[in-house]
């Protein structure tokens, strides 16, 4: 027969199963935080294309499309839609700083972005230090076409894109 000292016997009698921690306050906290975070969550965020319009006139601006009026000669990408005057064509026209012109007409109803991409790669190889390019947009060109053109320019190292309008000339 085992003999316990009175204190040991009392301790054995008092032992119970360990209690689970009370998780209810933590649950309350979580249930409050989660709806709050769900309100702030942005699951589909849009991308951005930046254009700088600094007052110095060096980087961007809705110019008049005369091209090369500044201190540095610019490469121009002209975007034409189909409705323009005689002599113009639907597609891209790239005017190099040496005044040579490359035409990339539409293929069917679609602008030939793949050829534009090739052309921009060649231009970057030719002028590795150039980071500016001008995009001259005719009014009827679709916004989607403009954005894709700016996108390709930026992808090929022409990070500063000048947004220009063609010079409107009226003959009476």
């Amino acid at each position: 027969m085992a003999i316990y000292r009175p204190s040991e016997a009392r301790q054995q009698k008092g032992q119970t199963a360990p209690e689970e921690p009370n998780l209810v306050p933590i649950m309350n906290l979580f249930v409050t935080i989660i709806p709050f975070l769900m309100l702030m969550i942005v699951l589909s965020q849009v991308a951005m294309i930046a254009m700088n319009f600094e007052s110095s006139g060096e980087t961007g601006g809705a110019g008049d499309g005369t091209g090369g009026g500044g201190s540095e000669e610019l490469i121009e990408i002209r975007l034409y839609a189909s409705e323009h005057a005689t002599g113009l064509f639907p597609g891209f026209e790239i005017r190099d700083v040496d005044r040579s012109v490359t035409k990339i007409p539409k293929v069917g109803d679609v602008y030939d972005f793949a050829s534009l991409q090739q052309m921009l790669v060649q231009l970057k190889d030719k002028y590795p230090n150039k980071s500016e390019i001008a995009v001259v947009v005719y009014p009827d060109v679709m916004y989607d076409t403009l954005i894709r053109t700016i996108d390709l320019s930026k992808q090929n190292g022409f990070v500063t894109v000048k947004y220009m309008n063609p010079k409107q000339m009226y003959y009476y």
Partner: peptide, 25 residues
């Protein structure tokens, strides 16, 4: 005098792959 203008787009790294080049004139 707005110094910065951003255009919102949807990012698609593969959009150019839909286009095939034709010879430039």
């Amino acid at each position: 005098n707005f110094p910065n203008i951003y255009f919102a787009t949807i990012e698609d790294p593969d959009w150019l792959s839909d286009f095939r080049p034709a010879s430039p004139q």
